[in-house]
């Protein structure tokens, strides 16, 4: 058990492991996303108020969920990196940051598209929308900091600190934006109180959320493999690996 756990910390072991897992992950991701999306878009009943426009929920909610989940995950990985100096935790944290930013962007974009038919406007300065936008800025800051520092040993340390500072701030930002919004236009909030969903609408959503988590892991592993090759490029096994491919 412990030996297996220690092996997980070694890039040399994880690189081929991810390679073996990837086809399976890709298969299940595609299967779940296709089932969930087709079910949601074609077979789930239309909403009694919003008609068919509500169907964007099957893209919007999973990506919004992942946008926040990824940031928390990065912070957990950063803590692991600081406490146990696990190289692989650091690498994975750096690898998934752009994926989180992409999910945040998708959540904002689909939210805007959904907002037009539902509220009559693409954007409202609502608490949730605003804190999601700030979350996107936090992602940009993380990615930019890592790339700005040329010494990657230093860069990852700065990245960890910023990730932890960010995750302490996310609840404060969320709470304060909530406070700010309710002060100015409290009525908007009631728009967000969702009626509890009917099971035939909920199932495709749950499938899509699971599919999106798998999509995140699949892309994360692909990026991790890339990252391992780049940062271990001076080791013997990477040279052999690359020659093998060439």
């Amino acid at each position: 058990m412990w030996q297996w756990f220690h092996k997980l910390g070694s890039p040399k072991y994880v690189y081929p492991l991810c390679g073996k897992l990837l086809p399976w992950m890709a298969f299940f991701t595609t299967a779940l996303l296709v089932i969930g999306t087709v079910w949601g878009l074609f077979y789930a009943p239309a909403d009694y108020q919003q008609g068919n426009s509500f169907r964007i929920i099957y893209i919007h909610v999973p990506s919004a969920f992942m946008s926040m989940g990824t940031y928390t995950y990065i912070a957990v990985l950063a803590a692991i990196g600081i406490i146990w100096r696990m190289k692989l935790a650091d690498m994975f944290a750096v690898a998934i940051a752009p994926i989180g930013a992409a999910f945040t962007f998708v959540a904002l974009f689909t939210g805007a598209v959904w907002g037009k038919p539902t509220w009559g406007t693409y954007w409202v300065w609502d608490a949730r929308l605003t804190s999601e936008l700030i979350l996107l800025f936090l992602y940009f800051g993380l990615i930019a900091l890592y790339h700005a520092i040329e010494d990657k040993q230093k860069a990852i340390k700065a990245f960890r600190i910023l990730a932890l500072v960010g995750v302490v701030n996310v609840p404060i930002i969320h709470y304060s934006v909530h406070f700010w919004n309710t002060l100015h236009q409290g009525a908007t909030l009631s728009k967000f109180e969702k009626p509890s969903m009917a099971p035939e609408m909920l199932w495709p959503l749950l499938i899509n959320i699971l599919g999106t988590v798998l999509l995140f892991l699949t892309i994360g592993m692909m990026r991790l493999r890339n990252h391992i090759l780049v940062s271990e490029k001076n080791t013997q096994w990477v040279k052999q690996e690359v020659q093998h491919v060439l």
């Binding site: 700030i134 936090l138 800051g141 930002i173």
Partner: peptide, 12 residues
């Protein structure tokens, strides 16, 4: 870029 998002609560 790093600190403006963190200034949001203070500003609010």
């Amino acid at each position: 870029l790093l600190i403006l998002p963190l200034y949001v609560p203070v500003l609010i």
